[in-house]
Write a protein that binds this DNA or RNA. Structure first.
Lengths: 347, 347
DNA sequence: CATGATTGCAAAAACGGTTTGCTCTCATGA
DNA sequence: TCATGAGAGCAAACCGTTTTTGCAATCATG
């Protein structure tokens, strides 16, 4: 196993000092453009990779970025949806590696553990009000970036989807497919994601003269939570003809509940969920989803925190990641009276 | 913000050289016991924490342990159960920090990213045959520890539960509660976890003269997968009166399917799942589970890989983590003819 | 009592980068 | 002609450990 090529080898090969190599590659110091390019060329030719550990030591950093994905709800550790987090985390991990940082899990980690290994920065996914990890790091002066905003704190550095825009869009989508009475299965209002979506829903109802029907799901936010919330809705005297579930697992629970209660999906009941997932794709009918683009969220968060750690200012402290509606079977177009239905009408 | 106390401060305070401090704290060199203890006392009094970055640089390490939790099944990225992985990962993260390592996600990470930041070791959770990440690291001579064994390779370093022991135990548990016909909802035979459980089930059936009823669930291994597998079982002419699902999410799907098909749980249908979870605890009836103790698995894996990285030999290359049956409502004791039922008999 | 082995500790050399300060050239203006 | 200053690059210090080497002092041995 050949030893890794270091800065000294590059310097020797390029006929300059290691200082010059360092400066050339990091865009620092005062060098002629010619030297700079030459060094870069040699470094590339030799396949030089700066040693992150040495760089961190010199820079007084650990090279570690914490990722906190815990939501403490009623004292319980709850992870809403893994597909979402997995995508976000994987993308963030790769992005961090690319910038010479390593991403470590910071949720569930006891405070005492921080002492052994200092983190340079922290990314909090879906922060809740008075998040203890967030508070701890902020007070230590360690940069923090959140995905989703900190409730009650519009400032700070964050990446977010625009649920005020996306929620009406998906409600309109349901309407366009013939829905008249759209219910919302929400999550407890502990994240801005939850409160934004809820508020956008309420506003949409008022603007469109619709009745607001909201059920907040049990805190574990699983299929069962969605199932039970849906049962409540479908057993009303005036059940909804469409449901927007604020998480895909709850939407799948809604699908199961609709089947159990004898509601044909999408003919009698349309269902859409927030967050796209493999499970939703596999469901029958497949699930219409609002894709949140967690990969991009993760990458943007890493980019921002890395900039902050390196002492720079991100071009914009707030980044909005676009969403996209993915229409699938669970909201397939209703057949209207004007268009004779292909299948025999249900009794 | 006060500067961190370093080895020099400790040396000065203790009236010795930094060499002596390093040796004393790491149990190396030749020092009198008195000096050793004195240095330790001073270090502790000053709250000295060795700088992991410097230590890694000197030791030629990165201080990074990769955690690979991906299962590539039919080209799809599938995570079976997040509650399990979350517990394992959290415990492993803390354990790693305690030993001066940081745990980073290695699943989904493109190979190119390895080049920027070398990992000192790798933990693969539930490896599959010919796992590409596993192969890559092994061939580079980087230590690898797996949780669950590598299919077809009984050697190597691994932590595992003993499913050959646990599976009969939970089947016996179901029998003790009155089950006569126990079905298995399995996962695709890509991990030793899957094949061990399956094989243990088959053996148990033969030993007890029972019919083997197995359904392998759809590859996403979610509630829906369990739901559909259960439907297949319950719609047989001779449906089972108990189901052991090899993942808790599938067990919850079984619960929903049982409800949908009008099977009373646990009276007509007992259900047990592998892996304990919050969701299972919340289900109605609550779900009997085989607890796998993922926290301990994570800790043991970190301990073993850290030992290997530091050049030592773990006391035992194979570690069995004990399991435990947690009886809950879904296998509550059937009322037998001899004991008059408390509730009115069902028509 | 010289010799060699053992013990206890310190000085110095890595580890692989970044950063600071200095030197050397050369053009410019007084 | 000589300060002045800017441009280009280098040497050395530094980051905080671990590890190797070196050197006394002590102790046992022949």
């Amino acid at each position: 196993m050949r030893r890794q090529v270091g800065i000294r080898e590059v310097a020797a090969e390029a006929g300059v000092s290691i200082t010059t190599v360092s400066h050339a590659l990091n865009g620092k110091g005062r060098l002629s453009n010619q030297t700079r390019e030459h060094v870069k060329e040699v470094a590339h030719r030799l396949g030089y990779r700066p040693n992150a550990v040495a760089r961190n030591l010199a820079g007084g950093r650990s090279g570690l970025i914490g990722l906190s994905v815990a939501q403490m709800i009623e004292g319980q550790f709850a992870i809403a949806d893994f597909a979402y987090y997995a995508q976000l985390m994987n993308a963030a991990t790769v992005a961090a590696f690319d910038r010479g940082f390593a991403l470590v899990l910071a949720s569930g980690t006891k405070e005492s553990a921080w002492n052994n290994l200092m983190l340079d920065g922290l990314i909090v996914v879906d922060p809740i009000r008075d998040d203890p990890v967030w508070a701890e790091f902020s007070s230590r002066g360690i940069p923090v970036v959140t995905t989703g905003r900190v409730p009650g704190d519009p400032d700070g550095y964050w990446i977010d989807n625009d649920h005020f825009e996306a929620t009406p869009a998906i409600l309109d989508h349901l309407c366009a497919r013939g829905a008249e009475r759209i219910a919302l299965i929400g999550t407890p209002p502990v994240t801005t994601y939850a409160t934004d979506s809820r508020e956008a829903y309420e506003r949409w109802c008022i603007r469109n003269g619709k009745e607001s029907m909201v059920v907040i799901a049990r805190h574990d936010l699983t299929e069962v939570a969605g199932y039970e919330a849906t049962l409540k809705l479908l057993r009303r005297d005036d059940p909804p003809d469409a449901i927007y579930a604020m998480l895909d697992r709850m939407a799948i629970g809604a699908l199961l509940a609709g089947r159990a209660e004898g509601f044909a999906v999408p003919r009698q009941l349309q269902i859409a969920g927030c967050t796209d997932s493999e499970a939703g794709r596999l469901a029958r009918p497949s699930l219409t989803a609002l894709a949140l683009n967690p990969e991009q969220i993760g990458r943007e968060a890493v980019s921002m925190i890395a900039t902050l750690i390196e002492g720079g200012q991100p071009p914009n402290p707030h980044v909005i990641v676009p969403t996209k509606i993915i229409p699938r079977g669970s909201t397939r177009k209703k057949t209207f009276a004007a268009t004779p239905p292909l299948a025999a009408p249900q009794p």
